Computed example of a mutant assay.
Amino acid sequence: MAKPNKKGPTKTVDIFCAGCRTQLFKYRKGGKGALVKCFKERIVKDFTVEEGVCPQCGVHFARDTLIRGAPALKMVGGKVSMK
């Protein structure tokens, strides 16, 4: 299978915890759809201490996985929001 484009999109979005509104990532997202996964190579700035866990409220918002051979975070539905 094809890997995601290394350079990726130029538009960045801010990803927040849905529960406590703490900023988790600044991410280069492509397309207009919902946030289902975050490729690790596209994360511009990471505000988390532990991967997939909100630093403020401790909620697990994502799990580590491989998607198309690239490391990614698979988001848990309803745990994150983006602007």
Rank of each mutant, 00 (worst) to 15 (best):
K37F: 03
K29E: 07
G30Y: 07
V80I: 15
R68N: 13
K3R: 13
G77K: 15
T12A: 06
R68C: 12
K40C: 10
E51K: 12
K83G: 10
V59K: 10
V49G: 04
M75W: 00
G30K: 11
T10S: 15
M1V: 11
C20R: 10
T48P: 06
G58D: 04
M82D: 06
G33W: 04
I67F: 02
T48V: 09
V44M: 08
V13E: 11
K29M: 10
K83T: 09
N5W: 08
L24I: 03
H60S: 10
K45Q: 15
V13N: 07
K40Q: 12
T22K: 12
L66K: 09
I67G: 00
D46G: 02
K40V: 12
C20D: 15
G19D: 13
I43K: 04
Q23E: 08
R21L: 13
A72L: 04
I67V: 15
K79S: 10
M82R: 07
T48I: 06
D46C: 13
C17Y: 07
G8S: 03
I15K: 00
K74A: 15
T22C: 08
K6Q: 11
F39C: 01
K45P: 00
I15T: 08
Q23S: 03
K7H: 08
R42V: 01
Y27V: 00
C57Y: 06
C20L: 06
L66W: 08
G33C: 06
K45I: 07
T10A: 12
M75C: 06
T48L: 08
G31L: 09
R42Y: 03
I67N: 04
F47I: 06
G58C: 11
G31D: 01
K32P: 03
G30T: 00
V44D: 05
G52P: 09
I67T: 12
